[in-house]
Write a protein that binds this DNA or RNA. Structure first.
Lengths: 122, 122
DNA sequence: TTAACGTACAACCAAATGGTTGCAGAACTT
DNA sequence: AAGTTCTGCAACCATTTGGTTGTACGTTAA
């Protein structure tokens, strides 16, 4: 589990995997801007309806989009919460990096330290 | 190309794909905190050295980590620039979403609009 | 010099991915 | 009632992924 985010490893896997395809990222952009039916999306890409349908399913399993029934159509819309959760995860990476830099800075700022015992090196 | 980021689709693919694996995310965390040799990393996981080596190669191809030679060792370190580039991409998605919400708000705020001509629809 | 260590890479394998076509069902239209 | 539209799903296929073992080579230590 990614502690502060309440997301399992498998969920994070699915989110990143879903975003690792240009067609799917494009779909996310479109449906964040405005909901669209699956066939309206399919018209935009040079592949079969079934292929687009699969892409939408991948995004749905990752929680990046949701579907809502309207008559015979399925309206796909973006889920901004999922986006924010990924952002939070990347923020964590940046914080780790900054913490490291801070530690290095602190070391350099220290006066030449004549520690008598050998430094623990793990 | 993702305009404002100077990243090709293929590069973004590689970055997200690289992050879509728990072992690789763990490696990124470790080497953002402090550089480590490939074998030091391999000791941490319940898989062969070669498997960890492959994971590091995936991260390297994605630009998330870099390697530096030191004697017979290869020191792996995190590349915070790549992290920031992904953050920028997700920011773009969030801005799209906010722009949509703003548009919807504007519509609701409008007085009942008796437009004489049919509204342009696509 | 020999032995051990750290790495790279090839070959192999099972499973997942990303595409296809085809068929069937639900929901509109005429 | 019949036809069209939108969707879902199964079956199939080529490629990629994520793991393995084995071999080879440069570097450090005895």
């Amino acid at each position: 589990m990614v502690a502060e985010l309440d997301l399992s490893d498998a969920e994070v896997d699915r989110i990143f995997r879903a975003l690792a395809d240009a067609t799917r990222r494009d779909i996310v952009e479109r449906v964040l801007t405005g909901e669209q039916s699956v066939s309206a999306l399919a018209d935009r890409y040079d592949m079969s309806f079934a292929a687009v349908q699969k892409h939408v399913a991948v995004l749905e399993r990752a929680g990046l989009v949701t579907k809502q029934n309207r008559g015979r159509e399925r309206l796909v819309r973006g889920n901004p919460d999922a986006i924010r959760r990924v952002q939070a995860l990347l923020d964590r990476y940046e914080r780790l990096w900054r913490a490291r830099i801070d530690r290095l800075d602190a070391l350099l700022a220290e006066p030449p330290h004549p520690s008598p015992s050998a430094p623990e090196q793990e």
